[in-house]
């Protein structure tokens, strides 16, 4: 009888110990995609209605843009060729900016996804317009809307003049958008200014990454240099050992040597 008392106690204790506290998995769930309408209107020369969406306010740097197309009857068009024509009017001169047109003629969840890299904010210097050219159901037309580009609190676009070919290069910061202490995916996109209207993606660079915490004067271990994936996008890994202000130093080189250096700030 007494034996059972002890056994019960032992069992109870075991239960107490091994039930107090379970492993928590607090990986934050990815936030639901929010489409924010920037503009809508008719594409000149067609009877289509065009809706322009982004995820957030348009800022200097890389902005994903989503186009929704509707025919005269209000039915969503799923098959179309869409291209972007951003334009900066500075009075004396005009220039375009790097773009990524929707890669496929097929809408994804009803939207044609692409991106525009605005190279400067709107303001006294000049104003931006975004042209969207569509070609569907045998009709072709363009919808042009003024857009306001803001300068983000932390710069997400850097430029430099290459030491090797003298051309101006733009480097846009894409990831990490929500940096965390730990391993983060790093993604940047590189474009080159070939005149005022043409900004092709640069695919032949070698990038070296060095994160630094300027306040503490230290870096982080085991980072992976970004390498080219497609369309001028370079992907790697950046490791943060703590929150705070970090500088991500990038050294860009081409076949003939170091082209330029720059850094992005990450503050979290």
């Amino acid at each position: 009888m007494k034996k059972y008392t002890w056994l019960t106690l032992w069992a109870l204790s075991l239960i107490t110990v091994f039930t107090t506290g379970c492993d928590k998995d607090d990986d934050t769930p990815t936030p639901t995609f929010a489409y924010q309408k920037i503009a809508e209107g008719k594409a000149a020369g067609t009877d289509f209605k065009i809706e322009v969406y982004s995820n957030e306010e348009l800022t200097t740097g890389y902005n994903p843009i989503y186009i929704a197309l509707f025919d005269a009857s209000g039915k969503r068009i799923e098959q179309a060729d869409v291209s972007f024509q951003p334009m900066m009017d500075m009075g004396m001169k005009k220039h375009a900016s790097p773009i990524e047109n929707p890669s496929s003629g097929q809408a994804v969840d009803g939207y044609f996804p692409g991106a525009v890299v605005f190279t400067m904010p709107s303001g006294e210097m000049g104003s931006w317009t975004l042209g969207v050219q569509v070609q569907a159901n045998g009709q072709t037309g363009t919808f042009t809307t003024p857009v306001t580009i803001k300068e983000p609190t932390t710069s997400r676009l850097k430029s430099f003049v290459s030491k090797t070919d003298g051309a101006k290069y733009f480097v846009a910061y894409l990831q990490p958008k929500q940096p965390k202490v730990g391993v983060n995916d790093l993604e940047v996109a590189v474009y080159k200014a070939s005149g005022m209207m043409d900004f092709p993606a640069v695919t032949n660079l070698t990038l070296a990454l060095e994160p630094e915490m300027p306040t503490m004067d230290h870096g982080s271990p085991n980072n992976v240099n970004p390498t080219h994936t497609s369309g001028g996008h370079y992907k790697g890994k950046v490791n943060f050992t703590m929150t705070g202000l970090w500088h991500l130093h990038l050294t860009l080189s081409d076949a003939s040597g170091e082209a330029g250096k720059l850094y992005f700030e990450v503050n979290f």
Binding site: D25, D26, V181, G182, V183, N239
Partner: peptide, 11 residues
């Protein structure tokens, strides 16, 4: 026990 902790060590 937490994802935050594991993320850190993954560095």
């Amino acid at each position: 026990t937490t994802g935050e902790g594991r993320n850190q060590l993954s560095v």
